[in-house]
Design a protein around this nucleic acid. Structure first.
Lengths: 110, 110
DNA sequence: CCATTATAGTTTGTTCTGCAAACCTTACGA
DNA sequence: TCGTAAGGTTTGCAGAACAAACTATAATGG
């Protein structure tokens, strides 16, 4: 029987970060200072509603910060990664790498 | 505006493989010739029902093969990765790496 | 100057998915 | 033979992703 490590790795996968759309959002924000709503929508291919709800969840977790500016009378939304968000993303990549590589040490389960 | 590539990468993330429990199952199976049901259950920490349903989905996608042997009157289930499953997993690791690294080229979206 | 279309989001409702509780079947022990 | 354990399967529900519908403001045009 292997150690409990694999189970721990699975549990360590933060679903909030792991979900494909949010993973893409976080990856995009990690690469730039900030981005606006429409840019992220194009980048991810998500519908507006869907993107809004994903951002709301990331905001609730303090992974992104949402700033709304009034520009030309119109409300524009800018997103950026918080330090916590950056940490969570880095930790996630690390968890995935661990899961990938550690599996090789688990041996046969027959 | 960036190319459409990021969107494509997101779309390329196979949810069937991406889901944490199944990712762990596939990673485990990739590391051994085959494993039995109980071994996988311990490895993943999943409940029986949950594991069964995940395996059913992987089986439906031809990613794993399920063999049931009658041993000591009891039905034992053995799982192994199909070539398609192995390919899907490898492709998935590659997609994740691409998403991770390519994000850096997207630049600011402001 | 009013109507239309476009932009930028939010809210609402449906559908799908993961999860565990309950159930089934066979074997084993007292 | 009655109870308990092992090994899975089926069912029901809570939550999450997704898009359609809605709101609000700004540019366009007749």
């Amino acid at each position: 029987m292997p150690s409990q490590a694999p189970f721990i790795e699975i549990a360590a996968l933060d679903r909030l970060v792991h979900e494909p759309a949010r993973l893409a959002i976080l990856a995009a924000l990690a690469a730039c200072r900030r981005a606006d709503f429409v840019y992220l929508q194009r980048l991810t291919g998500l519908s507006k509603g869907n993107l809004a709800s994903h951002l709301a969840k990331l905001d609730a977790a303090q992974y992104v910060s949402i700033e709304k500016h009034k520009a030309r009378g119109r409300m524009l939304t800018f997103l950026s990664l918080t330090p916590a968000g950056r940490d969570a993303l880095e930790a996630h990549w690390a968890s995935l790498a661990t899961l990938r590589d550690e599996a090789r040490t688990w041996g046969d389960g027959v």
